[in-house]
Design a protein around this nucleic acid. Structure first.
Lengths: 249, 249
DNA sequence: TAGTGGTCTAGACCACTGT
DNA sequence: CAGTGGTCTAGACCACTAT
């Protein structure tokens, strides 16, 4: 619960972000255990050589993420360890991105990749005219060689045509957008439902029709608010769940 | 998109909290519409007579909640209106509390209220010994006179016995804890699953066995980290969904 | 009494967006 | 160029917790 390595704090990344990742690693690596008390804000200020607001900025992010919680007058404490095939909803992440952080391997199989006309829901979400063409991409996602989810995604046509030339089987689309296309991601709006598998979906996911599925509708937008993609995600409920922390106030 | 009423800013509440609620009301009342630009941070500073950090604190909360998003160099913009029987996962709220904000009426029927021995999962979540007694409360929740969810809750025995004397049918337990017991809530850890209804559950929820249910496991803790309650929640998927926004970074 | 987190101020520099 | 949000500093006072 002590002996942090000296803070590197190189450059090119915001200080609060470097401190956040340093603390996240310390917690996930097991250098702190459940209910361990973290250094006080004062100690972190001197340890990293930054102001209190910067320390609090980093701590607030980790608190939102559920890795720690604060108690006024006492201090800051580490919470749950956790490591299952669950995806945290605290940060917008691609599936492979989230799973590889937890020691799983993820890959996709592209089932379908073709333009199609946008129905009203798709048109509204993407901000295009109903009936105009959008790119539909259907992928089957595998976690540790087992099918886990069916993703049906709709992209604005130009973006979809560009993506069609990429390695969609091996890479997260989020990372292609951010790294290759220099499109900073902003946020995603999710609605989480449950449904049962029909015969087709069950066949693709390798489960039985009538099995429960987690169903998510997700609209992802760039940092400037522009809609990038509408996803319909169907997860096998026996192999996947979401996990998150909610704070009061 | 203008003409805010003059800021009252009475007292007894943190400034950032008052500003947050003032802006939230302005957005939800329709004084701002989708994609309207909010006043700049500079304008809000002078309007409310506070520092920039206080304004940013208020805006950060609303951004996390999904009511607005920022674009560097341009400004701060209002997002989705939305109003369905969905519960946002941005804040820890009781069911009735969340639904009444959206113009629905919620109530409960208590099906069972009795002590029972804690199995391992319950004991771990509540921090008690396995086999020791805890209070089990089963409630059927109604939204607009229709059954929506079955809640099976486990409380530490002393807290459960105290709650047994309260009006559990009409009031949120969260509000009883906060207002009557002066127990400030901290956070909740949720895991979101899907499952299908068995015959018993279907009978209670008024659906058919085999129908899809949203299933949530939730551990709620006080502000000091003490576990307050473990809930197993089963929602009719045709009448309820969760909604939330996730931010990148 | 000392230490903690909660709140708040008054500045500052930067990168990006618009004109 | 001015305006915007992103980041950061160096202070300050308060309420609560522990000793």
């Amino acid at each position: 619960m002590k002996a942090d390595t000296l803070p590197p704090l190189h450059a090119s990344q915001p200080l609060h972000s470097q401190i956040r990742e340093h603390l996240r690693a310390a917690i996930l690596d097991g250098r702190y255990h459940e209910h361990d008390k973290l250094p006080s804000e004062q100690q972190l200020m001197t340890q990293f050589g930054v102001s209190r607001i910067t320390v609090r900025h980093a701590l607030a992010a980790l608190q939102q993420e559920g890795l720690l919680f604060k108690v006024a007058g006492k201090g800051c404490f580490v919470s749950r360890p956790a490591a299952k095939p669950v995806q945290t909803l605290a940060r917008l992440q691609g599936f492979a991105e989230a799973m590889s952080q937890r020691g799983h391997t993820a890959c996709n199989r592209v089932l379908r990749l073709a333009p199609c006309p946008a129905d009203t829901a798709i048109a509204t979400a993407l901000g295009v005219d109903a009936g105009s063409e959008v790119m539909e991409i259907r992928r089957l996602r595998y976690l540790d060689q087992q099918p886990v989810s069916l993703d049906i995604s709709y992209f604005p046509l130009a973006l979809g045509q560009r993506l069609a030339r990429e390695d969609l089987a091996g890479r997260d689309i989020f990372l292609i957008l951010e790294n290759d296309y220099a499109t900073p991601l902003g946020h995603a709006d999710l609605t989480i439902h449950a449904c049962v598998a029909d015969t087709d979906t069950a066949g693709q996911l390798g489960c039985r029709s009538g099995d429960a599925l987690l169903h998510v509708e997700r609209v992802t937008r760039a940092a400037d608010g522009q809609p990038l993609v509408l996803d319909y995600l169907y997860y096998r409920a026996d192999r996947f769940s979401y996990q998150l922390r909610i704070n009061r106030s």
